[in-house]
Every structure is written in structure tokens, then in C-alpha cells.
Amino acid sequence: MTLKSKKLVEYAAMLVIWLGLVLLFGMLSQSFLSLRTFVTLANRIPALAVIAAGMTLVLVIGGIDLSVGSVLGLSGALVGLALVNWHLPFWVATLLGLGVGLVAGTLNGLVSVGLGIPSFIVSLGMLEIARGVAYLTTHSQTKYIGATVEWPSAPIPGLGVSPAFLITLLVIVAGQVVLSRTVFGRYLVAIGTNESAVRLAGINTKPVKVAVFALLGLLTGLGGVFYTSRLGSSDPNAGVGLELSAIAAVVIGGTSLMGGRGSVVNTFFGVLIIATLEAGLAQVGASEPTKRVITGLVIVVAVVLDAWRHHLTGRKFSLLKRLFTARPASGTPIS
């Protein structure tokens, strides 16, 4: 099987899993299989989806960014300030929101790559800093903005989905193309596979790595704009814990936390699965704690299945294989 057809099979598999989930909830609840459910879903996911797309690229190089939730909050806070306090036009506010995300992401990249500190730690620091700045600038208050900011999340008449959702689809497609068909994307996969070999092939890996963090920052800024737009107000508490949902979506989509392997399209399916679970469980009347338990189980099962599949197909660097070969004197554990 060629790599191309393998990819298509993976897309199809993710689609089938998602459809299965939709059917399951359709059977459990009469009202689930309705147009309204899907429209709501489509208009709920843009913020998470664009961030998860960027996160995919960061995980592909073997990095991580824990600050995205806070940076989303900061971006939203700035959009609110710009519109309400400074009376700036919408597009300037949007640029500010994107800009602050870009700055935060670039800082993450520069510090972790430049000083050789794990991105886990650097972005953990940024998580606190960005949230703190968001509180300081808004005096910890939610600002009502209203119609000036709501239109990107409002359904387009006759189409049903919002402009934000259309932009999200564009970002997903562009992200996938960048990852699989451009020089930049090839470098990302190569760095995630074996950075030492890439360096010894004469490629300067540092600018590439900084750029990928910057890109995630920019997309997080965009996520902040989407989030603010959906609420119609800017909330400095927005996006608490979002980094975990984003990472979960990426991992459900089969991207390796060890780097070197990933797909933006599959991440999008991961986002769909998480959002569908949430909406479906709410509809069948599951309590918030139950929802969290089930979502957690789904994440673990997805990762185990993925690791197992890669083990069975004989690919190296899979999590499970590492676990098993770490045990001494066990020759061929499974299969």
C-alpha cells in the first residue's frame, strides 16, 4: 500500500468513528439527529479547531505548547479592550488579537529553542503570564461587546454555518497542505523524526522550530477572536483548560507525542469527536462529571488503539512498543 492510499484509509477510519458516534447518540436521543445539532456543532468548534491545527504542527516536531488556553484569553481580552474602551474598528481589534497571539507564540519558540529549554516548561510559564496579563488589562472583568463582534460566529443566512466555520475549514486544509506538501512541512516531520540527522544534513533547524511555535501563537490569536465573537463579550477567563482539549484532539487524531508523525485533517476529526461527545452526552442528560469521565476514557482508548495499530504494522517509535521493549528479556511481546 502506498503512503497516499494509507493516508486516505486513515481519513476514512476517522470519519467512520465520528459517524459511529453520531449514530450512537442518534439512537440514544431522538432529537440528536437534527440539522440544529450539526449547525450548533459547526459553530461551536472553530476556536478549538484552529488551535488544534497549530498544535498538530508543534507536536509533529516533538514540542508542546501549554499556553494556548491563556493566550486565547489574552487575545479575547485585547479584542474587548480595543472595541469597547478604545473604540477601534473591528478589523484593527482582530489584528491586535492575532498580533498578541503571534508575539506569545514567538516568545515560546525563541526561549525554548534559543536557550534549549523544553517547550513544556517555557509554555507552562507563558500559561501563567498570559492569563495574568489578561486579568490585569481587563481588571478581571467580563466586557459585553455585542453585535460588532458577533457576526463572524452568526450563521450565514441560507447556508447555516458561520464565516468562522468556513475560515476554520480553510485553516485545516491549508494546515494539511503545509504539513504534507511544502518544504516547511517536510522539515517539521524530519525534525520530529530525528533532529540530529536533520542538523547533520546541513539544515538549520532553529528558525523552523521557532516558526512553528509562532504559527501556533497566531492561530491561537485567531481562536481568541472566534471565541470572543461566539460569546459576544470578552472574558478574561476564556479558554481555561483549553490546552488539554486541543492536545487531546490532536492525539485522538493519531499524531504522535514523540513527534515525526501527524495529520491536521485527522486532528479536525479529533475535534469533531470531542465536540460531538460533549454535545451528545449533554443531550442524553449525562451530568458534567460523567461527561468528563467518558471524555477521558475516549482519549486514553484512542491513544492505546493508535499505539497498538502502529505496533502491529511494525512501525518504530510507537509508545506501546517502547513500553514493552523497556522490559528486559522479553523478546517478542505481542503479535
Binding site: 518544504v183 523524526t193 540527522a197
Partner: peptide
């Protein structure tokens, strides 16, 4: 350790440092 991207194809490994040409 220092030469190859083991899980990647021969093509990806061969063109690694001439990629800009393509």
C-alpha cells in the same frame, strides 16, 4: 542516530538537504 530518518521513505531521506530545489 545521526544519518537517517528511519521511518521515512528513501525519497524523503535523499532529498532532505536539496528540498528547496523541488
Amino acid at each position: 542516530q545521526d544519518g537517517l530518518l528511519m521511518p521515512q521513505s528513501i525519497r524523503v531521506n535523499t532529498t532532505l538537504n536539496t528540498l528547496v530545489r523541488y
